[in-house]
Design a protein around this nucleic acid. Sequence first.
DNA 1: TGGCGCTTGTGAATTAGTTCACAAACTAAT
DNA 2: ATTAGTTTGTGAACTAATTCACAAGCGCCA
Lengths: 208, 208
Amino acid sequence: MKRIAESTVRRLSLYLSFLEGIERQGLKTVSSDELARLGGTTSAQVRKDLSLFGSFGKRGLGYFVPELSEKLREILGLGKQWRVCIIGAGKIGAALARYRGFAERGFNVTAVYDSDEAKIGKRWETLTVRPISELEKDAAKQGFDIAVVATPAENTPAVVKQVVRAGIKAILNFAPVQLSVPSDVTVRNVNMAMELEGLSFALSNRSE
Amino acid sequence: MKRIAESTVRRLSLYLSFLEGIERQGLKTVSSDELARLGGTTSAQVRKDLSLFGSFGKRGLGYFVPELSEKLREILGLGKQWRVCIIGAGKIGAALARYRGFAERGFNVTAVYDSDEAKIGKRWETLTVRPISELEKDAAKQGFDIAVVATPAENTPAVVKQVVRAGIKAILNFAPVQLSVPSDVTVRNVNMAMELEGLSFALSNRSE
DNA sequence: TGGCGCTTGTGAATTAGTTCACAAACTAAT
DNA sequence: ATTAGTTTGTGAACTAATTCACAAGCGCCA
Ligand SMILES: NC(=O)c1ccc[n+]([C@@H]2O[C@H](COP(=O)([O-])OP(=O)(O)OC[C@H]3O[C@@H](n4cnc5c(N)ncnc54)[C@H](O)[C@@H]3O)[C@@H](O)[C@H]2O)c1
Ligand SMILES: NC(=O)c1ccc[n+]([C@@H]2O[C@H](COP(=O)([O-])OP(=O)(O)OC[C@H]3O[C@@H](n4cnc5c(N)ncnc54)[C@H](O)[C@@H]3O)[C@@H](O)[C@H]2O)c1
């Protein structure tokens, strides 16, 4: 299959969230034009994105909402349940671990790790904070699909080494550092400082 | 000035963070090649990005680290202090309000708002949670440059209307909804579910 | 001063991503 | 059955972003 751009995958995610809203409204079909309007793009873009994976629409009608939702979930790999561990039981880690929205989409937080003796052993709803030193052993036993890394920037490269050694192939990183990982490991960064700087840039350069 | 792509601005942010690390190491100059290596891009990309704003380097030598840092801070609008308010005193709002990293870069959280009576009036370190109904009045008095929106998805469109009415021109949105705002308001979205779906896609489509 | 080694800045070339535009396929109405 | 009205799927055209490639500038040293 040909390479799919990250921007395409982001839009597919977006379309799926729109479809879920449309389904709740009880509509049976939707046109590429309507999805484009919701997503701030063009109908040609929507059709191109979908056509990378097949022909899901009916000419003259549009797309059947439940059918297209299902296809998108399949494409995005959301059919299955993913096992997620959170590394770093701090402020961000706590917010993420307690967030209901992830499990709804099949991302199940099944463990939380920290290096701080004061935090290890603490109960977080159904989870207990575990020592990071056990990560590799636990991963071998129960297997994690995704690691969410929410540790201080300076410790994060070392943490990520452990994550990689534990055989985890996908990382969502919240620390403001650039990670270097083997090519079979996928990283996505959430860098809020960078987003704020983008806003700062926009505010500083308006109307020029 | 010509339009600058968002991807360029993201890279400028990244370069700046590298420069700060390099400065701490005590190095005086850096080449585009070194910055490219750190950022996982090419030296031509680095030079193109910078050349959009001027000629900051010295041939044969590279860039003077403190000088380039300063230039980047200027370009990104980081010379000044920005006033930031957080809307939604929930899990994410709490993590953000207590995060030290923002003030270090000139983003000062000066107020937190919520609609929940139980939360209004609570003290958060130096801040007191204020009723969202006061947002417009407060904004007129003290002025906010940036609003961080961390409210439940269903309430977020209404919240954003209030933010826009309060005259705030930049929004960092954590709710998984697409916002519609006037064209003079800049929005950046942080959508963690979408990032996880990107990882899910990568895990599901490896080696094809 | 001249030559060498290095690195920038930037047009040109290339590659990637988006939009156009239209034939083909479908529905509904008569 | 025919026609009018939609909307898809997709090459072709276009636009944006990245990479190439090299002249020109600079430091250093003999
Ligand atoms: N809090 C925010 O709003 C916010 C915003 C943007 C970015 N971030 C980034 O997210 C990361 C976490 O931020 P935070 O505010 O939650 O910090 P925090 O200090 O509240 O939490 C960090 C946690 O990581 C743990 N830790 C440290 N080293 C570890 C190791 N080697 N192995 C396992 N655990 C370890 C600490 O014990 C602590 O519990 C940081 O990199 C920060 O820059 C946070
Ligand atoms: N917690 C997470 O890790 C996480 C992760 C990804 C996305 N999000 C998103 O971030 C947003 C906030 O999530 P959270 O977990 O912090 O939720 P939360 O329920 O902990 O907090 C939301 C807060 O917003 C307040 N609120 C509701 N309506 C409001 C209004 N009209 N005006 C002002 N305040 C209002 C609530 O009183 C509450 O305090 C949600 O949209 C959620 O989907 C959260």
